[in-house]
């Protein structure tokens, strides 16, 4: 387990993290969401030892991360960083060596990753000559080359075209399938929803929601029911007890069931109006869950 436990951090008077905690199981992918400036980068930098936490710790397999354990983590910082004048192959091999591979292993691993990420033809070029997308691939190669036990990636998908997104997603899924816990932050919530086993939403320095997307949906306050009744008169649902009409447009009605509301009673009322062409619980997207989680201050902390 990779555990973030009770992280606190203030910069001057600005409290950035106020007890952030969550766990990521080996082989699972964790999507780290939050508004800009919510503290995702700070939490990741604490894990990498780049920022010192005021309190709390990050553990991998039960031991607090130190310099030695951190070398087993593949890291991609939010601000991409590579030596601009160093050649692609040598650069990747250098990072492999910094992570503890010996000379021969480092260069063969570098060759392998450069090849796998489709950069074989650019191996001898300095990084600054590459397009931004390709530089991003080199960055990923630098994070993956040492066969890390853990991956921590800050906004890995930003700036990639759809094909780049797909190949990065594929690479990350491959790592997760191999048993590596993967944490990545992203604003592309559709991507997080598609890829991640679990999601954490950070707001105001706290985790306001963690769990699988499914769990978040179930936990979501106010479940929405969409009923399409083309023949119904307007306001057909207002009389059903325990129901609040969220929207209604030419029979396409979205209802929220409040205390004691019964979906079967709604169905019966709908059938009484005539044809029912659609009747289903509406799945909130992660975007909706996110808006809700970030907007409403939830006092209880969802800590690990």
């Amino acid at each position: 387990m990779l555990e973030f436990d009770g992280l606190h951090k203030s910069f001057g008077g600005n409290r950035v993290l106020d007890g952030v905690g969550f766990t990521v199981a080996p082989g699972s992918m964790f999507g780290f969401c939050g508004s800009n400036g919510a503290g995702k980068t700070t939490a990741m930098r604490i894990a990498m030892g780049l920022v010192r936490a005021d309190a709390g710790e990050v553990r991998w397999r039960g031991s607090v991360l130190d310099q030695g354990l951190r070398r087993r983590i593949g890291y991609m910082p939010e601000e991409r960083g590579l030596y601009p004048k160093m050649k692609v192959g040598e650069q990747v091999a250098y990072f492999a060596r910094l992570h503890g591979l010996d000379g021969a292993a480092a260069s063969s691993a570098a060759d392998e990753w450069v090849e796998r990420l489709g950069l074989a033809a650019r191996r001898g070029d300095p990084v600054e000559k590459l397009s931004l997308g390709n530089q991003q691939r080199v960055q990923l190669a630098a994070a993956l080359v040492s066969r890390p036990e853990v991956l921590i990636l800050d906004e890995p998908f930003s700036g990639l075209d759809p094909i780049g997104v797909d190949s990065l997603a594929e690479a990350l899924l491959g790592q997760a399938r191999a048993g590596v816990p993967v944490i990545f932050s992203s604003h592309q919530l559709d991507l997080v929803e598609r890829l991640c086993d679990s999601v954490g939403i950070l707001a105001r320095g706290r985790m306001v929601a963690t769990g699988s997307v499914e769990e978040l949906r179930r936990r979501g306050a106010g479940r929405l029911l969409r009923v399409v009744v083309p023949d119904a008169a307007p306001h057909w649902a207002t009389t059903v007890p325990g129901v609040r009409v969220v929207s209604e447009q030419a029979g396409d009605t979205v209802l929220e069931l409040v205390d004691g509301g019964d979906d079967q009673a709604v169905l019966a009322a709908a059938l009484r109006t005539g044809r029912v062409t659609h009747f289903a619980w509406q799945q909130p997207t992660l975007v909706e869950l996110f808006r809700e989680a970030v907007a409403v201050p939830t006092p209880q902390e969802v800590a690990a």
Binding site: L50, Q67, E79, G81
Partner: peptide
């Protein structure tokens, strides 16, 4: 300037 230092400091002091 190239921010590579963040990656370096993740592996060394």
């Amino acid at each position: 300037a190239s921010r590579v230092v963040e990656l370096l400091l993740a592996t060394m002091k």
